[in-house]
Structure formats: structure tokens, C-alpha cells
Simulated assay, not measured.
Amino acid sequence: MKMWIKNSINPGKQKQEKMISGMYMGELVRLALERFTKEGLLFGGKGSDMLFERGRFYTKYVSEIESDPPGVFNNLREICEELGLKHATEQDYINIRYICECISRRSAHLVSAGLATLLNKIGEKKVTIGIDGSVYRFHPHFHNLMMEKIKELIDPSIEFDLMLSEDGSGRGAALVAAVAARLKKENSYRAIPYDYFIV
């Protein structure tokens, strides 16, 4: 992964963002696939020019791959064909999906750890978190992964919810905050606007 760090935007900076955001998630998967292919663990050791091209495995592929039900590889088969990997086997499909799931889960857990720390620090008993970003919006399991991990990490007395900010990160978070301020007056309910940028 040192090569990825060297080739990323602002090398050595924004390290957490590079582990969690949609701008980088597809490339993380591609690098894992490239490494396992070169080690002979995927595709019989035979990759493709597109697989080995930086930035060619898009983050939307991760969401599409994980959108298929377990054991079904319709989206993944199409993606492999698009990447020149028509020789991929069913075992390759299983392994690729597992790699995507690992990187998605790590991303969701890292985001959740930050939010859980904030929730525990603030100490409010009822909180709504406004979230924006394409991974949260389109990934089929990201919301549930975050809900599960945050529950695991916060004080059990805290009630929270995650809400998609529909109008863009800044405006969406501002809207959630405005609604929360009104609800706080009426029901003692508070929201934390949290700009979660995922491109």
C-alpha cells in the first residue's frame, strides 16, 4: 500500500479520509486485487491491463458487487468482463466480493469509531446524525454496518439515528441542524450535523 500512499493526493496527509471515503475505496480494492493476482491467488495469476491501471476500479463497482445477493454474481461478472477478466472463475468472484466486503466494513467501522467518540463526548441522550456522500447513499450495507458498530461503541443510554442529508453536504447538514434546533425546543431532541464527504 506504500505505492498507493505515494500516488495519492497530498501524500502523507488526510490518512483517515483515504481509508474511508469513496474517492479512494475503489482504488483500495483494485490494489488488493492487483496484489493477489500477481501472487497467483486470483484469476490464475493472469490479470488485465485495466485491472493494473490506477483508478480503473471504480467505487461504484464495490456497491454494485455487494448489491447482489450472497452467492449471486451478476454484477460482478459484468464488471470482470468490463475489466478484461472474462477468465474469472466462480472462486474468483467469491474472493473479489469478500475483498470488497472487508474494505467496506473497515471504512464503515472507522467512520463509526469517530462518530461514537463524538456521541460519548457530547453525552446527549437523543441524537440524529446527518450524513452525506455517495458511499452512504448507494452502498447497500453501509448504513447497517455503521448502525451496528456505533451501537457497539457508545454508551447504551444514548439513542441515535443516522439520516441522509439529501441536499449536499453543507446544505443538508445545515437543514438537519435547523430542524433539530426546532425539535430541541419542542421535544428536547438534538441533532449533530456531521459532514461526511464521500465522493
Rank of each mutant, 00 (worst) to 15 (best):
Y58R: 15
G26R: 07
G168S: 11
N144V: 00
Q91P: 00
S112H: 09
H141A: 09
G84I: 02
E152I: 00
L164P: 13
D155V: 07
I192A: 06
I198D: 13
S21R: 02
Y24T: 03
D195K: 13
V72Q: 09
V176R: 05
G12P: 01
S63E: 11
K13H: 10
L85F: 02
F36Y: 12
S165Y: 11
K15E: 12
V111Q: 05
F197P: 03
E39K: 11
S21W: 07
K13L: 13
A88W: 00
K121S: 14
A174W: 12
A116G: 10
I122W: 09
I5L: 13
F142A: 02
Y58Q: 14
V127F: 08
D161L: 00
P140V: 08
G40C: 03
A174E: 09
N7H: 15
P156N: 00
S67Q: 15
E148N: 12
R182L: 12
P140Q: 07
L153A: 03
A116P: 08
K151V: 00
I158S: 00
L42C: 03
T59C: 05
L162N: 06
G55K: 12
L175D: 08
A174V: 11
F43S: 04
Y58L: 15
L164S: 10
T59R: 03
L118V: 14
L83R: 01
H109V: 03
E27N: 09
Y24D: 05
L76R: 03
I99M: 11
T117Q: 12
K185R: 11
L183A: 03
S8L: 08
I96S: 05
L115N: 07
L115K: 07
K151S: 12
